[in-house]
């Protein structure tokens, strides 16, 4: 359709909306491209040392190498698996605990200070303890993932359960229902938004925990790649590890904006899972990169990108 003066006001409005959305999308892409160009440019011009700062081309080459020799898939796969396992266990444990706390007021009053204290523990400091208790295997890593997310999750869910309108619960009692009906008919369905947002936070936290676990007790996984890369000064390997999860973060949120206006709620949770795997972990990886060093054996990938310049 040609844009002419004959357009109605509604059509003009629609065009303006479309232009606005295009502009936002373009600006986002430009920022990313600008950053990459600036980074690559400064390395090539010699403003920064590629030995310490790596460069987009090195990261890309390393990534291609890792895809070729399959280490990309094994490492990502193992981290994903561990994260999912911790996430699901966190969900299970926190749902059960929050239900128990909701059922018994006495129980929740007794346990409240303990939950607050446990939640404020520096969970990453617990990881070495888990190694002593559980050995250096997948169990330790999953438990590390759980420990980071579970206490906050219990507190969140319990608070969510408590905030359900008392009058709605009264309605269930007036209809002849009991506490069980109140839970399954009001509290649980009424807390779905809380549960979903809680899941979203949890998967990020579980990933953080898993990466911490992998720093200390793994021979595979993204956390291991990052820590190894940082130790042998192969920064590009570490950065590849961080960047691996980047692309999926840029996928537009189709369901997140209004989960309740849509019929297919399952899509929402799948999307939350998908989305939350990404930026949070990335940020954390950046933070961890400056952390402590742990020597670990690593099979050098056959592909060695040569330093540029």
């Amino acid at each position: 359709m040609k844009i002419t003066d004959s357009l109605s006001n509604q059509e003009k409005y629609e065009h303006a909306c479309l232009r606005h959305r295009r502009m936002v999308f373009l600006a986002r892409i430009l920022i990313l491209a600008g950053f990459l160009i600036l980074w690559e440019g400064s390395v090539r011009m010699g403003y920064v040392d590629s030995f310490f700062f790596s460069s987009p081309s090195q990261v890309a080459l390393c990534f291609i190498g890792m895809v070729k020799d399959f280490t990309f898939f094994t490492n990502t796969g193992i981290t994903l698996l561990e994260t999912l396992a911790s996430f699901l266990l966190v969900l299970l444990i926190s749902m059960l605990s929050a239900t128990l706390l909701w059922l018994s007021r006495k129980c929740s009053e007794i346990l409240e200070p303990y939950l607050v204290v446990l939640n404020s523990l520096p969970k990453s400091a617990l990881a070495p303890l888990f190694i002593v208790w559980l050995g250096t295997g997948i169990n330790t890593i999953i438990v590390a993932g759980i420990s980071v997310a579970v206490f906050g999750s219990v507190i969140n869910l319990y608070t969510g359960f408590r905030q359900v309108d008392e009058e709605k619960i009264k309605l269930i009692y007036t209809l002849g229902g009991g506490k069980r009906d109140a839970f399954f008919k009001v509290v649980l369905p009424g807390s779905v938004p809380t549960i979903l947002s809680n899941m979203k936070v949890n998967i990020g936290l579980a990933l953080v925990g898993v990466i911490i676990g992998e720093f200390l007790a793994a021979r595979r996984g993204l956390g291991y790649l990052i820590i190894y890369g940082s130790q042998v000064f192969r920064w590009w390997a570490g950065m590849t590890g961080m960047g691996i999860r980047f692309p999926s973060a840029s996928i537009p949120p189709p369901f997140l904006s209004a989960p309740f206006s849509r019929k297919k709620q399952t899509h929402t949770s799948v999307y939350v899972l998908w989305k939350s795997l990404l930026p949070r972990g990335m940020l954390h990886n950046f933070a961890c990169l400056s952390g402590k060093a742990h020597p670990a054996p690593y099979r050098i990938t056959p592909f060695h990108p040569c330093p540029v310049l």
């Binding site: 009058e167 309605l171 369905p189 309740f260």
Partner: peptide, 11 residues
């Protein structure tokens, strides 16, 4: 028993 609000469940 009818309460002040309808309390129909949105879900």
């Amino acid at each position: 028993y009818m309460l002040q609000h309808d309390h129909l469940f949105e879900w």
